[in-house]
Nucleic acid binder design. Structure first.
Length: 281
DNA sequence: GCCCAGGAGTGTG
DNA sequence: CACACTCATGGG
Protein backbone atom coordinates (compact mmCIF):
# COMPACT_ATOMS: atom_id res chain seq x y z
CA UNK A 1 0.00 0.00 0.00
CA UNK A 2 0.99 3.59 -0.53
CA UNK A 3 0.12 6.61 1.53
CA UNK A 4 1.27 10.08 2.48
CA UNK A 5 2.05 11.47 5.94
CA UNK A 6 2.58 15.00 7.13
CA UNK A 7 6.18 15.01 8.29
CA UNK A 8 7.96 18.29 8.72
CA UNK A 9 10.71 18.85 9.49
CA UNK A 10 12.17 15.51 8.44
CA UNK A 11 15.53 14.67 6.88
CA UNK A 12 15.56 10.97 6.03
CA UNK A 13 19.29 10.86 5.35
CA UNK A 14 20.21 12.34 8.72
CA UNK A 15 17.62 10.24 10.51
CA UNK A 16 18.17 6.83 8.94
CA UNK A 17 21.82 7.10 8.01
CA UNK A 18 23.42 8.40 11.19
CA UNK A 19 23.89 5.17 13.11
CA UNK A 20 20.95 5.07 15.48
CA UNK A 21 19.41 2.28 13.42
CA UNK A 22 21.10 -0.15 11.09
CA UNK A 23 18.64 -1.68 8.66
CA UNK A 24 18.04 1.20 6.25
CA UNK A 25 19.80 2.02 3.03
CA UNK A 26 19.37 4.56 0.31
CA UNK A 27 18.20 3.02 -2.93
CA UNK A 28 19.65 4.05 -6.30
CA UNK A 29 16.60 6.24 -6.99
CA UNK A 30 17.09 8.13 -3.73
CA UNK A 31 14.33 6.52 -1.71
CA UNK A 32 15.13 4.90 1.63
CA UNK A 33 14.34 1.24 2.09
CA UNK A 34 14.20 -0.68 5.33
CA UNK A 35 12.28 -2.96 7.60
CA UNK A 36 9.81 -2.13 10.36
CA UNK A 37 8.62 -5.22 12.18
CA UNK A 38 7.80 -7.86 9.59
CA UNK A 39 7.26 -5.56 6.63
CA UNK A 40 9.47 -3.78 4.16
CA UNK A 41 9.06 -0.02 3.92
CA UNK A 42 10.15 2.51 1.33
CA UNK A 43 10.26 6.21 2.16
CA UNK A 44 10.62 9.34 0.09
CA UNK A 45 10.36 12.95 1.14
CA UNK A 46 8.12 15.23 -0.89
CA UNK A 47 8.12 18.75 0.46
CA UNK A 48 6.43 18.77 3.85
CA UNK A 49 5.12 15.26 3.46
CA UNK A 50 6.49 11.76 3.44
CA UNK A 51 5.57 9.24 0.75
CA UNK A 52 5.38 5.70 2.10
CA UNK A 53 5.24 2.39 0.28
CA UNK A 54 4.56 -0.40 2.77
CA UNK A 55 4.31 -4.13 2.24
CA UNK A 56 1.38 -5.87 3.92
CA UNK A 57 1.92 -6.57 7.61
CA UNK A 58 -0.03 -7.27 10.77
CA UNK A 59 -0.44 -3.81 12.23
CA UNK A 60 -1.47 -0.53 10.68
CA UNK A 61 1.35 0.70 8.46
CA UNK A 62 0.61 4.37 9.13
CA UNK A 63 0.89 3.91 12.87
CA UNK A 64 4.06 1.87 12.44
CA UNK A 65 5.81 4.61 10.44
CA UNK A 66 4.52 7.40 12.67
CA UNK A 67 5.83 5.61 15.75
CA UNK A 68 9.14 4.57 14.19
CA UNK A 69 10.02 8.09 13.01
CA UNK A 70 8.53 9.67 16.14
CA UNK A 71 6.40 11.91 13.98
CA UNK A 72 4.27 12.86 16.97
CA UNK A 73 7.22 14.52 18.73
CA UNK A 74 6.70 18.25 18.94
CA UNK A 75 9.94 19.35 17.33
CA UNK A 76 9.15 23.03 17.88
CA UNK A 77 8.98 22.52 21.63
CA UNK A 78 12.01 20.24 21.73
CA UNK A 79 14.22 22.43 19.60
CA UNK A 80 13.24 25.61 21.31
CA UNK A 81 14.04 23.99 24.66
CA UNK A 82 17.45 22.82 23.41
CA UNK A 83 18.01 26.18 21.73
CA UNK A 84 18.51 27.75 25.14
CA UNK A 85 21.97 26.17 24.98
CA UNK A 86 24.22 28.59 23.08
CA UNK A 87 26.27 25.94 21.26
CA UNK A 88 23.24 24.00 20.11
CA UNK A 89 21.31 27.12 19.17
CA UNK A 90 23.99 28.11 16.69
CA UNK A 91 23.52 25.10 14.42
CA UNK A 92 20.07 23.86 15.19
CA UNK A 93 18.63 24.85 11.82
CA UNK A 94 21.00 22.49 10.02
CA UNK A 95 19.81 19.43 11.94
CA UNK A 96 16.20 20.54 12.11
CA UNK A 97 15.05 17.43 10.24
CA UNK A 98 16.99 14.88 12.27
CA UNK A 99 14.57 12.69 14.21
CA UNK A 100 15.29 10.13 16.82
CA UNK A 101 13.85 6.74 15.88
CA UNK A 102 11.73 4.45 18.01
CA UNK A 103 12.96 0.96 17.21
CA UNK A 104 11.58 -2.26 18.51
CA UNK A 105 12.92 -2.76 22.06
CA UNK A 106 14.36 -6.23 21.47
CA UNK A 107 15.91 -5.28 18.15
CA UNK A 108 17.57 -2.25 19.70
CA UNK A 109 18.94 -4.35 22.55
CA UNK A 110 20.64 -6.86 20.28
CA UNK A 111 21.66 -4.21 17.75
CA UNK A 112 23.54 -2.11 20.28
CA UNK A 113 25.16 -5.09 21.93
CA UNK A 114 26.52 -5.91 18.48
CA UNK A 115 27.51 -2.27 18.03
CA UNK A 116 30.21 -2.44 20.71
CA UNK A 117 33.65 -1.75 19.33
CA UNK A 118 32.54 -1.92 15.71
CA UNK A 119 31.94 0.69 13.03
CA UNK A 120 28.56 1.34 11.44
CA UNK A 121 29.09 -0.58 8.17
CA UNK A 122 30.14 -3.62 10.12
CA UNK A 123 27.20 -3.35 12.51
CA UNK A 124 24.82 -3.25 9.55
CA UNK A 125 26.51 -6.30 8.12
CA UNK A 126 26.28 -8.29 11.35
CA UNK A 127 22.59 -7.48 11.69
CA UNK A 128 21.83 -8.38 8.10
CA UNK A 129 23.64 -11.67 8.65
CA UNK A 130 21.73 -12.73 11.77
CA UNK A 131 18.46 -11.66 10.15
CA UNK A 132 19.04 -13.83 7.09
CA UNK A 133 20.27 -16.69 9.26
CA UNK A 134 17.64 -16.64 12.02
CA UNK A 135 14.84 -14.35 10.86
CA UNK A 136 11.89 -15.06 8.60
CA UNK A 137 11.89 -14.23 4.92
CA UNK A 138 9.51 -11.31 4.38
CA UNK A 139 10.51 -10.21 0.87
CA UNK A 140 13.02 -11.07 -1.79
CA UNK A 141 16.32 -11.23 0.11
CA UNK A 142 14.86 -9.42 3.13
CA UNK A 143 14.37 -11.00 6.54
CA UNK A 144 12.69 -9.99 9.77
CA UNK A 145 14.83 -9.31 12.81
CA UNK A 146 14.87 -12.57 14.79
CA UNK A 147 13.04 -12.49 18.11
CA UNK A 148 14.26 -13.97 21.41
CA UNK A 149 12.69 -17.33 20.62
CA UNK A 150 14.46 -17.47 17.27
CA UNK A 151 17.86 -16.70 18.75
CA UNK A 152 17.53 -18.80 21.88
CA UNK A 153 18.76 -21.99 20.31
CA UNK A 154 21.40 -20.41 18.11
CA UNK A 155 24.75 -22.10 18.53
CA UNK A 156 27.80 -19.90 19.24
CA UNK A 157 29.51 -21.09 16.09
CA UNK A 158 26.44 -20.16 14.03
CA UNK A 159 26.47 -16.68 15.54
CA UNK A 160 30.20 -16.31 15.01
CA UNK A 161 29.66 -17.27 11.39
CA UNK A 162 27.57 -14.09 11.15
CA UNK A 163 30.71 -12.10 11.97
CA UNK A 164 29.81 -11.35 15.58
CA UNK A 165 33.15 -12.34 17.10
CA UNK A 166 33.14 -12.19 20.91
CA UNK A 167 29.65 -10.61 20.76
CA UNK A 168 28.23 -14.03 19.93
CA UNK A 169 28.36 -15.06 23.59
CA UNK A 170 26.54 -11.90 24.66
CA UNK A 171 23.73 -12.45 22.18
CA UNK A 172 23.36 -16.05 23.25
CA UNK A 173 23.27 -15.13 26.91
CA UNK A 174 20.72 -12.35 26.41
CA UNK A 175 18.49 -14.52 24.21
CA UNK A 176 18.26 -17.04 27.03
CA UNK A 177 17.75 -14.38 29.69
CA UNK A 178 15.16 -12.16 28.00
CA UNK A 179 11.78 -12.96 26.49
CA UNK A 180 8.96 -10.73 25.33
CA UNK A 181 7.36 -10.84 28.80
CA UNK A 182 10.57 -9.43 30.25
CA UNK A 183 10.56 -6.69 27.61
CA UNK A 184 7.01 -5.89 28.66
CA UNK A 185 8.09 -5.50 32.28
CA UNK A 186 11.03 -3.28 31.30
CA UNK A 187 8.70 -0.99 29.35
CA UNK A 188 6.96 0.02 32.56
CA UNK A 189 10.14 1.11 34.36
CA UNK A 190 11.37 4.66 34.66
CA UNK A 191 14.58 5.52 32.85
CA UNK A 192 16.98 5.11 35.78
CA UNK A 193 15.54 1.73 36.78
CA UNK A 194 15.41 0.64 33.16
CA UNK A 195 19.08 1.33 32.51
CA UNK A 196 20.09 -0.44 35.71
CA UNK A 197 18.06 -3.50 34.71
CA UNK A 198 19.53 -3.48 31.22
CA UNK A 199 23.05 -3.28 32.66
CA UNK A 200 22.44 -6.58 34.41
CA UNK A 201 22.53 -8.23 31.01
CA UNK A 202 25.71 -9.71 29.61
CA UNK A 203 27.38 -7.29 27.22
CA UNK A 204 25.33 -4.28 28.31
CA UNK A 205 27.25 -1.48 29.98
CA UNK A 206 26.52 2.23 30.46
CA UNK A 207 26.60 3.19 26.81
CA UNK A 208 24.58 0.30 25.41
CA UNK A 209 22.02 0.67 28.20
CA UNK A 210 21.56 4.32 27.25
CA UNK A 211 21.28 3.56 23.52
CA UNK A 212 18.63 0.94 24.19
CA UNK A 213 16.80 3.24 26.61
CA UNK A 214 16.77 5.99 23.99
CA UNK A 215 16.32 4.30 20.62
CA UNK A 216 14.41 1.23 21.80
CA UNK A 217 12.42 2.31 24.84
CA UNK A 218 12.00 5.93 23.79
CA UNK A 219 13.40 7.52 26.96
CA UNK A 220 14.27 10.93 25.56
CA UNK A 221 16.29 11.91 28.61
CA UNK A 222 18.88 9.17 27.92
CA UNK A 223 22.26 10.47 26.73
CA UNK A 224 24.51 7.72 25.30
CA UNK A 225 28.20 8.65 25.38
CA UNK A 226 30.56 7.06 22.87
CA UNK A 227 33.94 8.30 21.63
CA UNK A 228 32.28 10.86 19.33
CA UNK A 229 30.10 12.36 22.05
CA UNK A 230 33.09 12.40 24.36
CA UNK A 231 34.97 14.50 21.79
CA UNK A 232 32.01 16.81 21.30
CA UNK A 233 31.60 17.41 25.02
CA UNK A 234 35.29 18.16 25.42
CA UNK A 235 35.55 20.33 22.31
CA UNK A 236 32.38 22.36 22.79
CA UNK A 237 31.89 22.40 26.55
CA UNK A 238 35.29 21.56 28.00
CA UNK A 239 33.80 18.58 29.81
CA UNK A 240 35.85 15.53 30.74
CA UNK A 241 35.71 12.61 33.11
CA UNK A 242 34.05 9.29 33.67
CA UNK A 243 30.87 8.15 31.97
CA UNK A 244 28.91 8.81 35.16
CA UNK A 245 30.21 12.34 35.44
CA UNK A 246 29.70 13.24 31.77
CA UNK A 247 26.20 11.82 31.92
CA UNK A 248 25.37 13.97 34.94
CA UNK A 249 26.80 17.05 33.25
CA UNK A 250 24.90 16.39 30.03
CA UNK A 251 21.66 15.85 31.92
CA UNK A 252 22.23 19.19 33.61
CA UNK A 253 22.80 20.89 30.26
CA UNK A 254 20.08 19.30 28.16
CA UNK A 255 17.45 17.94 30.55
CA UNK A 256 14.45 15.95 29.42
CA UNK A 257 15.43 16.10 25.73
CA UNK A 258 19.08 15.14 26.21
CA UNK A 259 18.61 12.31 23.71
CA UNK A 260 17.90 14.74 20.88
CA UNK A 261 20.87 16.89 21.90
CA UNK A 262 23.03 13.81 21.88
CA UNK A 263 22.02 12.92 18.34
CA UNK A 264 22.60 16.46 17.11
CA UNK A 265 26.07 16.49 18.67
CA UNK A 266 26.81 13.04 17.29
CA UNK A 267 25.91 13.98 13.73
CA UNK A 268 27.88 17.19 14.01
CA UNK A 269 31.00 15.53 15.32
CA UNK A 270 30.85 12.86 12.61
CA UNK A 271 30.48 15.35 9.78
CA UNK A 272 33.24 17.47 11.23
CA UNK A 273 35.58 14.47 11.08
CA UNK A 274 34.35 13.38 7.65
CA UNK A 275 34.57 16.60 5.65
CA UNK A 276 35.22 19.43 8.07
CA UNK A 277 31.67 20.67 7.95
CA UNK A 278 30.51 21.90 11.28
CA UNK A 279 27.13 22.89 12.61
CA UNK A 280 27.95 23.59 16.23
CA UNK A 281 31.11 25.33 17.32
C1' DG B 1 49.61 -2.62 6.47
C1' DC B 2 47.68 0.68 9.78
C1' DC B 3 44.21 2.67 12.56
C1' DC B 4 39.99 2.64 14.66
C1' DA B 5 35.27 1.63 15.72
C1' DG B 6 27.95 4.24 18.68
C1' DG B 7 32.53 -0.72 24.66
C1' DA B 8 32.26 -4.30 28.12
C1' DG B 9 34.29 -7.29 31.60
C1' DT B 10 37.54 -7.91 35.03
C1' DG B 11 40.74 -6.68 38.42
C1' DT B 12 43.05 -3.13 41.27
C1' DG B 13 43.97 1.10 43.92
C1' DC C 1 34.43 5.53 42.24
C1' DA C 2 38.21 5.92 38.81
C1' DC C 3 41.62 3.93 36.11
C1' DA C 4 44.37 0.07 33.43
C1' DC C 5 44.31 -3.89 30.90
C1' DT C 6 42.31 -7.37 27.80
C1' DC C 7 39.33 -8.94 24.22
C1' DA C 8 38.90 -9.51 18.85
C1' DT C 9 38.01 -8.16 13.93
C1' DG C 10 36.60 -6.20 9.75
C1' DG C 11 36.05 -1.65 7.28
C1' DG C 12 38.13 2.69 5.56
Amino acid sequence: MRFRLEASPLDLGQTLGCGQTFRWSQLPDGRWGGVIGVRTIELKSDGDSLLVRAAPGGTDARDAVIEYLRLRDDMTTIQSALGSDRRLARGLTRVRGLRLVKMDEWESLISFVLATYANIPRISKMIAAIASEFGRGIADGVYSFPGPEELRDARPDELRACGLGYRAEYVRSIAREVDMAAIGRLKRLGYEDLREELKELDGVGDKVADCVSLFGFGRLEAFPIDVWIERALRRLYGLEGSYARLRRDATGLFGEYAGYAQEYLYLNERSLAADGSCMFS
